[in-house]
C-alpha cells in the first residue's frame, strides 16, 4: 500500500509536469496540423548486412548483400502511405534512392552537429515534385551490437558465445518529417525495439531467428522466409512509430 501511495504521488507530479509542458507540444502539433499533402521517401532496403559479433575470428568483416529485388522500400512507402492516408493526402514522389541510402553519420560526433541534417538538402534537391506541405523520409538507423561494433539498416547478426550462438534479424530505421516549404525538421524518431526478451537488445526492431533464416550462398533474395521475417519486423514497427510521431493512429 505504501508503494502504491508513493507511485500515486509520483504520477501526480509527472502529470503536473506534463500539463505544464503542454505548451511545448503546440509548436510541433501546430506545424503538423498545417500539413495537408505529404510525400513519402524510403531508402532502407537496398542491401542486407550480415555481421558476426561476440566471439569472432580475427579477420571479421561485415558482408553486404543486395536485396533490392525484395522491394522493401516500395513496401514501406505503401504501408506508411496507408497509415498516413487517414490524416493526410499522400502523394507519390520520385527521388534518387541511392542518394538517401548513402548518407551516414560521421563517427566524429561533433561533425554531425556542425553539418546539420544532410537529408534536408536532399529533400530540396533530389525529390520531385516540390511544394508539398511535408515530406516523410525513412532511412537506415544504426545501433550498437556489442562492444566495438555497430549495425545498421536491414541485417542479420550471427552472435557467437563460448557455449551458444544465435542469429538475430534487425530492421533499424528512423523517420524524419520535413516541412515542405522551409524544409525545417518537424520531427525525427527512430523505430523502437519490439518485445524481444532473448538475444541482443538493439536500438530498433529485431528478433531472434533460427539458422534456416541465414542467407545461404550469399543470395538472401532466394530465402523467402528471411524476406517474410523482415517484412514482419517492418510492418509491426512502422504503424507504432508513425503513431508515436502523431502522424497516424497508433496500432
Amino acid at each position: 500500500m505504501r508503494c502504491v501511495g508513493h507511485c500515486a504521488g509520483l504520477v501526480a507530479v509527472a502529470l503536473a509536469v506534463s500539463l505544464g509542458a503542454c505548451g511545448t507540444f503546440a509548436a510541433r502539433d501546430t506545424r503538423l496540423q498545417a500539413v495537408k499533402t505529404v510525400g513519402i521517401i524510403s531508402a532502407v532496403g537496398d542491401e542486407m548486412n550480415v555481421t558476426s559479433a561476440g566471439l569472432t575470428g580475427l579477420n571479421n568483416t561485415n558482408r553486404s548483400l543486395p536485396i533490392g529485388s525484395w522491394g522493401l522500400d516500395e513496401l514501406i512507402v505503401q504501408q506508411a502511405g496507408t497509415a498516413l492516408n487517414a490524416r493526410f493526402n499522400v502523394q507519390p514522389v520520385s527521388y534518387r534512392r541511392a542518394a538517401f541510402a548513402a548518407i551516414t553519420d560521421s563517427p566524429i560526433r561533433p561533425m554531425n552537429v556542425v553539418r546539420g541534417d544532410p537529408f534536408k538538402r536532399l529533400v530540396q534537391t533530389e525529390v520531385s515534385p516540390q511544394g508539398l506541405d511535408a515530406y516523410v523520409v525513412i532511412t537506415k538507423a544504426r545501433s550498437s551490437a556489442g562492444s566495438g561494433r555497430y549495425v545498421e539498416g536491414i541485417g542479420l547478426i550471427e552472435y557467437r558465445t563460448l557455449l551458444a550462438s544465435h542469429n538475430q534479424l534487425h530492421a533499424l530505421y528512423e523517420i524524419r518529417v520535413f516541412e515542405g516549404k522551409t524544409f525545417k525538421l518537424i520531427e525525427k524518431r527512430a523505430a523502437q525495439p519490439l518485445d524481444n526478451p532473448e538475444g541482443l537488445r538493439l536500438a530498433g526492431p529485431s528478433r531472434t531467428v533460427d539458422e534456416t533464416f541465414a542467407p545461404g550462398n550469399d543470395i538472401p533474395a532466394q530465402n523467402e522466409r528471411l524476406r517474410a521475417a523482415i517484412v514482419d519486423l517492418l510492418a509491426r514497427s512502422l504503424a507504432t512509430t508513425l503513431g508515436d510521431m502523431h502522424l497516424a493512429d497508433a496500432h
Binding site: A14, V17, S18, D195
Partner: peptide
Amino acid sequence: SAEPLFTLPAPP
C-alpha cells in the same frame, strides 16, 4: 516488461 514505465513530455 518491455513497455515504457512512464512517458514524459517533450522538452520545451
